[in-house]
Design a protein around this nucleic acid. Structure first.
Length: 465
RNA sequence: GCCGCCGUAGCUCAGUUGGCAGAGCAGCGGACUUUUAAUCCGAGGGUCGCAGGUUCGAAUCCUGCCGGCGGCACCA
């Protein structure tokens, strides 16, 4: 082409190259490139080469152009795929003038496919000497900076694809997340659980205490809710005799954003007929071992945990004003409008939860805080429930499920929850004694990956428009 | 919703007391057949988040708005 002046616009340069390719009869967006081998596999095939050693082994790889060094008659470029990075060597005596020119015309970020001979460079780096090279897709935007990666948090979350291109550890994290989820499925499938899907769009919401998102069903001219939990539908399946069920999917809660809260989040719930919460705790520990969180979980009762941290015995002051007085006498805030149960909740979240960095199961909650849990068999006023904490964060919640329909109706009334008649009818049909668990997948991944924010483990976290 | 911090080139970041808008990477032109953040020469690239205000003069000071982060509140 002509010798146009140096273009000011960094985007226009790439556009111009695209047009030049088309003009030269090269399709900048071809349809396929088959027979590709992962870069990691090509590397593994030549693990022990010494500097300067040639192999004669031909490999076909594909990926994104990530760096280049040298120009003229010989150039090195780095190619990255999901599995890793490999250096390519282009030589004019191998590719010819025209081929070399095409290689040098590539931009960082272009997707290319390569057939090349494996050898070890003088500096000891496994390299593919390019035999032939195909542009697989032209990149029209410059990639993020190659040394520092993409740092800007807003861009990383709004354009996660750039984050994935630029930051290898981000790529690894989301692969880890996928492996965690498939490990959970494999574990539960292996234990005889059936994976089910229940409605996301619900005429009535329940199974947790949270504000829902509301939407409108036009055909019925009626408001619907996005589910806040799968609990009630799953228990109906236990009534139906499925015995062991689980669902892995999104819940939606119309609450504030924080490093621990995204409005849509991934939840595992499972229910197991004939189990109580201690059986659930044992299975939970094995499930955690299956995803790499080994070891036994410290167990502590909620009442003891509060007493140990604050000196207050909440069951000995089972009265709103008495408990508030206890708290105030110790210099703790006790908001006037809070009920006894809310004060207990306050004590747990302010004084117990932050101390639970080591994996811990907190057992036996007050009945007022747990409308779906069965009364404790020996501790009056408590229910058989545990919450699992790790990294100072609640990651799971489990109980012996309440299966007495009359008591369930009364508990929902006391909690100010709308009665879900279909659910209550199901309990009237007869639900076996059942243990259930809810596990926050995002938070679990935070713990496993050591990330301080839920946004780091959700591909596209909620952002303002 | 409230409070605090932040927003400068495609990316990573400087920018002094209010006095001409800067660097590195990337990109462009050129040199180079073993480079590893390649090197060297040359020429470019800006809505300083947006809108007002103060001032002879604003990236810098003030107000409002938008967006992000952190905290509080709500909650899980």
């Amino acid at each position: 082409m002509g010798d146009e002046p140096a273009p000011a616009d960094i985007f226009a340069v790439r556009r111009r190259k695209l047009e030049a390719l088309r003009a030269a009869g090269i399709d900048p967006f071809p349809h396929e490139f088959q027979g590709v081998e992962p870069i990691a596999a090509a590397r593994a095939a030549h693990a022990g080469l010494s500097p300067g050693e040639e192999t004669g082994a031909l490999h076909r790889v594909a990926g994104r152009l990530a760096a280049r060094r040298g120009q003229g008659k010989m150039a090195f470029v780095d190619l990255v795929d999901r599995s890793g990075r490999i250096q390519l060597q282009g030589r004019v005596d191998e590719l010819g003038e025209e081929g070399m020119e095409r290689l040098l015309a590539l931009d960082l970020g272009d997707l290319v496919g390569v057939d090349g001979l494996a050898f070890c460079s003088r500096r000891g780096e496994l390299t593919l000497r390019v035999r032939s090279l195909a542009l697989l897709a032209k990149s029209l935007r410059p990639p993020p900076e190659k040394h520092h990666g993409l740092q800007d948090v807003e861009t990383r979350f709004r354009h996660r694809e750039l984050d994935l291109i630029a930051n290898e550890e981000v790529r690894e994290l989301f692969v880890l997340r996928a492996r965690v989820i498939s490990s959970i499925r494999r574990f539960l499938d292996g234990e005889g659980f059936v994976e089910v899907e229940t409605p996301v769009l619900q005429p009535l919401y329940g199974g947790a205490l949270a504000r829902p998102f509301t939407t409108h069903f036009n055909a019925l001219d009626r408001d619907f809710y996005l589910r806040i939990a799968t609990e009630l539908y799953l228990k109906r399946l236990i009534v139906g005799g499925l015995e062991r069920v689980y669902e892995l999917g999104k819940d939606f809660r119309n609450e504030g954003l924080s490093p621990k809260h995204n409005p849509e989040f991934t939840m595992l719930e499972y229910y197991e007929a004939y189990a109580d919460y201690l059986a659930v705790a044992d299975r939970f520990e094995r499930l955690m071992a299956a995803v790499g969180l080994d070891g036994s979980w410290r167990r502590e009762t909620l009442v003891a945990a509060i007493r140990e941290r604050t000196g207050i015995d909440v069951m000995a002051h089972h009265d709103r004003d008495a408990l508030a007085a206890q708290m105030r006498s110790r210099g703790l805030e006790a908001p006037r409008e809070d009920s006894w149960a809310e004060l207990v909740d306050e004590l747990v979240s302010k004084h117990v939860e932050p101390t639970l960095v080591e994996p811990t199961l907190l057992l036996d909650y007050p009945v007022e805080l747990s409308p779906f849990a069965k009364r404790h068999r020996s501790e009056p006023g408590l229910v058989e429930r545990f919450e699992a904490y790790a990294g100072g964060m609640e990651i799971a919640n489990a109980f012996s499920e309440l299966n007495d329909p009359d008591e369930q109706r009364a508990r929902l009334r006391d909690a100010g929850q709308p009665p879900d008649e279909s659910f209550l009818q199901a309990l009237e049909q007869g639900m076996p004694p059942t243990g259930g668990l809810g596990l926050g997948i995002d938070r679990l991944v935070m713990v496993l990956a050591g990330r301080p924010s839920i946004r780091e483990v959700v591909l596209f976290p909620a952002m303002r428009d």
